[in-house]
Every structure is written in C-alpha cells, then in structure tokens.
Design a binder for these strands. Structure first.
Length: 345
DNA sequence: AACTCGGGGTC
DNA sequence: GACCCAGAGTT
C-alpha cells in the first residue's frame, strides 16, 4: 500500500477547530509562564493529568518562583514530591531550578535546543516548553502523539524502533512552516495531545467524534486499536523481603534513608531483609516480635512481596533514625502502605 | 538498544 | 491481570 499523504493545513484546521470547543481545563494551560509550564511538564512525565494536579498546586504554593525552588532544601522538595513516583525527577527538578537561577539569571531559555541542555528535559519536554511557553515551532512527540500518528499512517513497525519514523510523520503535520492562517504552535501542541488523551484513546477510540477521522488510515482499515504496535515485554521477576516496624518505649518509629540514587532515591523506609535488596536489619535488641501481615507492590520491573513484623525495643532508638508518627520524613507509597498494614490490627 | 525508574487509572 | 500515562538518564 502506498504511504498516504495528509494535507497539513486542512488537518491542522480541523484539529484546532475541534480543540477550541472541546479541551479540558488544566491549571498550566491558563498561563504562559515558563516556570509554571516547566514544573507541570516535569510532573507529567509518565504521569497522568489527574495525578499531577494536586501536586502541581502544592508546589506552586510552596515555590511561586524558580528562585524559591532553587533555594529550597531538597528535603522539602522530596516531602512535596512523595507519592508522585519517579523520584529522580525531584532531584533533577531541583538541579534544573538551580541552573536557571544561576547560569540563566532566573530566566528559562526560549529555544528547543537550549531547553534540551537542562537537567531532566529530554526531547519531549524541551519541545513542549518551546511550543507552549514560547509559542515556538517544535515537534512535540509524547505517548499521545505516538498513538495518533501511528494510526493516521498505519505504521506497522513496532515501538521503539518506529520512533524516528513517527517523529518524521509528526513533523509533517506540525506548524514548522508559516501558514496562510495564524496557526499557533502553543495551541497545536496542546490540541494533538488532547486528541490522543480524549478521542484517540488506547482502547475503544472514539472515531465517531474524531475531527481528523477523514485523514486516518487506521480508521479506514477498521483497526485503530491495533496501533501503536509495540515490542513484546517480558514477565516481571518476583522479589520478597521482611520489613520491621520497630518502636521504642516513647512510641518513636525506626526509619532509615535510602541512597540518593536508584529506586525510591533518598526516601525513608522500614528496615528489611530478603532478596529484594541486600540489606541488614538494624542491630537493635527486640523484646517482642509480632507478625503483621504482608503487602504486595508492583514496580516497573519487578513485583515485591513485603512480609511485615511489628516489634518493640527496650533501647532508645538512635536520634537520626527515630521519628514520631506525627512527624514522619518523606515516604514512598509502598512504605506508607507497609506502615498502615503493620499497625492495623 | 536495553534497562532503570512509581504509582494510579482504565478496561 | 494487562496496559498505559503530556519520558529521561544510564549502561
């Protein structure tokens, strides 16, 4: 079958006409402030809009400017990020804020190439900030766009090998050249992602409501949900561990901080042993140990079963590891689940 | 090119 | 359960 050609301007006008009347409100769409848009886009990496909104509001309230974020202690940033996942983003967020506040004198660069140099900004984030904060022509490719493009052109090669071809096709439809009408890159970027998120969905796409259905090869073929084709993924290994919820006579809980890199970087946790990680339990005498159930948790690349033991110690916990229940340090969702389970009768 | 890195919504 | 999410950094 000959590769189909989609006329860019009719496609763009159909898409933007639809977007003008159908987009969802999002707090970061009410502004063109690069700081606000950057903050939202870092949070949105592999994270749903609904999950991001409350975190975004709390961050903007705590850190209204890039300077305030740059000057904040990393502990405060981790506290506000806890629960959102992919904690490396929190460290890179801080690093990027300090780069902007210092090297860039408090102002975000406005070109895609300069943005790409900043910590935590890859091809997607650099393009979307250039397009939405600075209204610069840029080809924005996220998971939504990959789905829309592979359907429009029935791209049968599997991801990720097909990424270069997807980008090439996406660029053909993006506002990279001047148009005979005023096509704003800011609106186009939001519109094609909104189409993917609400119409061109992974399952049961709403082709009946699609403003660009007439251009779509997958719709014509009757199998839009078959796209994008992806490489097969392997089964997740199973790991397990036993975690100890140790309290002393004053009710303080023993927690320790994880390393600054790797899984759940810099967050705090219950001490644990087992084949999850090569850790030792703390050398603390325990006067009472009570089995307290187990929880399971699925990470991106393994499944974890965590057996829980509730225990007490006659000693006073080391000050660096002792936390009152009302004043806990940053904890992952896994460890919050573990604590809830350990202390629920 | 393959692997690492969370947690939650959807079906 | 499987899939996906406004992906980036490391090896």
């Amino acid at each position: 079958m000959a590769a189909q050609t989609i006329p860019a301007q009719p496609f763009q006008q159909q898409l933007l006409g639809w977007y003008a009347h159908n987009h969802r409100p999002m707090p970061w769409r009410d502004t063109q402030n690069p700081y606000s848009i950057w903050l939202a886009e870092i949070m949105l990496q592999q994270t749903t809009v609904a999950a991001v909104i409350p975190y975004y509001r709390r961050f903007l309230a705590a850190f209204p400017t890039v300077q305030t974020l740059a000057a904040a202690p990393i502990e405060q940033i981790l506290h506000l990020w806890a629960g959102l996942g992919y904690y490396r983003r929190a460290h890179l967020l801080h690093k990027c804020a300090q780069t902007i506040a210092g090297k860039h004198h408090g102002h975000f660069p406005s070109t895609e190439a300069e943005l790409l140099q900043l910590p935590g900004l890859g091809p997607y984030t650099a393009a979307v900030i250039a397009a939405t904060a600075f209204n610069q022509p840029a080809t924005v490719v996220d998971g939504n766009v990959e789905r829309v493009i592979t359907r429009l052109y029935t791209i049968n090669a599997p991801l990720p090998k097909s990424k270069p071809l997807i980008r090439q096709k996406a660029a053909l439809l993006s506002p990279l050249q001047p148009t005979t009408y005023n096509l704003q890159p800011r609106l186009y970027a939001n519109a094609i992602m909104e189409l993917g998120a609400t119409i061109c969905t992974p399952q049961n796409p709403k082709c009946l409501l699609c403003p660009v259905q007439q251009f779509c090869a997958a719709h014509a073929a009757g199998n839009p949900a078959a796209y994008p084709v992806k490489a097969a993924k392997k089964a997740l290994p199973q790991r397990s561990a036993t975690a100890y919820a140790i309290t002393d006579s004053s009710g303080n809980l023993y927690l320790r901080q994880r390393p600054a890199t790797g899984l759940l970087a810099s967050l705090w946790e219950l001490p644990h042993t087992g084949n999850w990680e090569a850790h030792q339990p703390p050398a603390i005498p325990l006067t009472q140990q009570t089995p307290a159930g187990e929880i399971t948790h699925t990470f991106t690349h393994f499944k974890l079963t965590l057996n829980l033991i509730r225990a007490t110690t006659p000693h006073t916990l080391p000050a660096a590891n002792a936390f009152a229940p009302s004043n806990l340090p940053p904890l992952s969702t896994l460890m919050k689940k573990a604590l809830t389970r350990a202390f629920t009768p």
